[in-house]
Amino acid sequence: MLGKTAGGLFWMFRYLERSENTARLIEAGFRIALTRPDAAKDEWASVVETAGVRTAFLERHDDFDGASVIDFLLRDKANSSSVLSAIETARNNARLVRTALTREVWEAVNESWMVLKEALRRPVREADLPGILGLIRRQSALVRGALHGTMLRNDIFDFARIGTFLERADNTARILDVKYYVLLPSISQIGSSLDNVQWETILRSVAGQRSYRWLNGTDITPRGIAEFLVLDGRMPRSLAFCVSKLSGNLSYLKKQYGHDYACVELVEKLGAELSETSIEGVFETGLHEFLTDFLRDNAALGAQIEQDFRFYG
């Protein structure tokens, strides 16, 4: 496979994942804005922070009001992480790697782009927002379904999955990091209604409310949430889950190519660290410090993958 093709697949799936994650962030922020109007502005600010686009946002807007944030995250072409930019970048990468995709996958991503471009042609009215956010999630599921149902399990599939999980791990870690203060046992007042809403928001933004309840009943605690999203290998958006998937796909590549890679070492080290850690240990280190380290290692892993498989040269 061409290095460029591997890189195109990687970025195509990173951006698809990003568009879905951004939609979920908006969904969670919107929920708070509806239920706790007085907390709305802070919540929108934290959504922008989580999406990693604070500087870009403040260049265009003075205030974290809902309409500006939603428009910036959904439609603004100046924001490379907006849903519209992300789906366009994903689709351009899909065109670049067209020969590595089945017709079904290509058509799914091309159709998503057409549908979302049309849906996001004009600013989205509040009344239409839930429908549009649902549409974004469904389109994303469509591409994923086509990928799973039709693609050969070879290196092409591995690079697609690696992009997905690297992006997802980054996203979950950032959601936790931006909200880390509400999860700190020492500061949060257990049982206060503000915190309950905040915690629920975290679960909502990773589509984890239902799974969390299955595991813990209605006992929503900061420790429980942190453990769920950092260490629980059954939760498909947890750090542990993403790293184990990355590790799996990278070791398939190692086996297929019959070669050792620096990125395999990195991911194994990251996996070992997570499996040896308990949630108590995480809080001892400091949740924020732990997440900062993780984000750094995750980014370094991405850079090493680019280099090991010659995405650019």
Binding site: L2, G3, Y257, H259
Partner: peptide
């Protein structure tokens, strides 16, 4: 020769 950059060289 003209060579293309693949994931394996």
């Amino acid at each position: 020769r003209i060579a293309m950059r693949t994931t394996r060289g």
